[in-house]
């Protein structure tokens, strides 16, 4: 029997809904053209931070959104990436090579701590990852207490746009990787682990292997993001990229945009960083309270984030067009969206 395996079905995958190639081209063109047109440092800076935020959100989402393993230790990955990349780069390694080594080192570290950490579930896993990241942060703070500054010749030839292009490229690669992951057969097992570990196992899914795969990819991209951070900052304390803020920002970006989707972290990253930079300029630290409240509201009222809000508005609009609200409840199709 022939069944709707093709066209109609594709509408259903959250990954495909937003991937209209037209939209991607428009967003990318804007990200490339706009900063060059304005050509101001604060715009380069804003767009750099947005790209970095998107990468961090995508990274966190691979483990937290797809595999359902809530990590509070992503700052550890960010920090390792920054530490390794910065050290190699300042010692004369070409930046791109240093960046790749930093990312791979982060993923390797994640694999080593992953197997024991995944013995913990739910809240215990979250606390375990937080502990690992904090141990790393304190260790680095103790052993590398002095500020790390680029040498004079590097500062002399420093180019902010170059930093942005690297960050943008990474955001594009990470988003592409998240998309391919969700389309791959591996994602079935990863999502299955999130939905119901025992049922997934009964269907032949090797649970630990799929958790480790999600963790490896997540750590790789978080490490690369840390490397880009190390490439941009002229000087910082080596402890700084290990600060829990980076974990929470990555998590909030994923949730505010739409956790478990590919488009979510892109929307979340752009929105979060834009609002944060605005608020931070006027309100200094109060913006953290505002984001805390926003995060709680999203989790309680719109678990699907901005994507869900957008979907609801769109549905409301189409219903209006069709002549007033219908008396009946949402049809199964609409429920599924």
């Amino acid at each position: 029997m022939k069944t709707p395996a093709g066209g109609q079905l594709s509408l259903w995958k959250p990954s495909r809904r937003w991937s209209g190639p037209g939209l991607i081209v428009v967003v990318l063109a804007f990200a490339i053209v706009f900063p060059q047109q304005i050509a101001q440092d604060n715009i380069w800076n804003l767009f750099f931070l947005m790209s970095l935020g998107i990468t961090m959100g995508q990274s966190w989402n691979m483990l937290g959104g797809f595999a359902g393993q809530t990590s509070l230790g992503h700052a550890g990955f960010f920090g390792i990436g920054a530490l390794v990349t910065r050290t190699l780069w300042l010692h004369g390694t070409p930046f791109i090579l240093a960046l790749v080594v930093g990312g791979v080192a982060t993923a390797t570290f994640a694999m080593i701590i992953g197997a024991p950490t995944f013995r913990l579930r739910g809240a215990y896993f979250a606390i375990g990852t937080l502990a690992v990241a904090e141990v790393l942060r304190i260790t680095v703070a103790q052993n590398r207490p002095f500020i790390s500054t680029m040498p004079g010749d590097m500062i002399a030839s420093y180019s902010l746009p170059a930093r942005y292009w690297v960050a943008l490229a990474l955001a594009v690669v990470t988003t592409g990787a998240a998309y391919l992951l969700l389309r791959s057969r591996w994602s079935l097992g990863i999502l299955g682990v999130r939905e119901d570990e025992e049922a997934a196992q009964a269907s032949g899914v090797h649970v630990l292997r799929h958790k480790l795969l999600a963790l490896a990819l997540s750590a790789l991209f978080m490490g690369l993001a840390g490397g880009v951070f190390a490439f941009k900052q002229i000087s910082y304390y080596p402890e700084a990229p290990f600060l829990p803020t980076f974990t929470f920002e990555a998590m909030m970006i994923a949730y505010i945009g739409g956790v478990g989707t590919v488009a979510g972290p892109v929307i979340g990253g752009a929105f979060f960083v834009f609002v944060r930079e605005r608020l931070a300029a006027n309100l200094t630290d109060v913006h953290q309270v505002i984001f805390g409240v926003l995060f709680i509201l999203v989790v309680l009222i719109f678990p699907g984030g901005l994507l869900e809000i957008w979907e609801r508005l769109r549905r409301l609009a189409t219903r209006r067009q069709q002549g007033g609200p219908r008396a009946s409840g949402p049809s199964p199709e609409e429920e599924g969206l």
Binding site: L188, L191, E195, G204, G336
Partner: peptide, 25 residues
């Protein structure tokens, strides 16, 4: 069943990971 996955993905889980699995999704 896996509640957030489609009916097709639920069934595909068995085909991708079960006995004599099909590697292409």
């Amino acid at each position: 069943p896996f509640p957030e996955l489609s009916v097709l993905d639920n069934a595909a889980m068995g085909r991708v990971y079960g006995r004599d699995p099909i590697k292409s999704r």
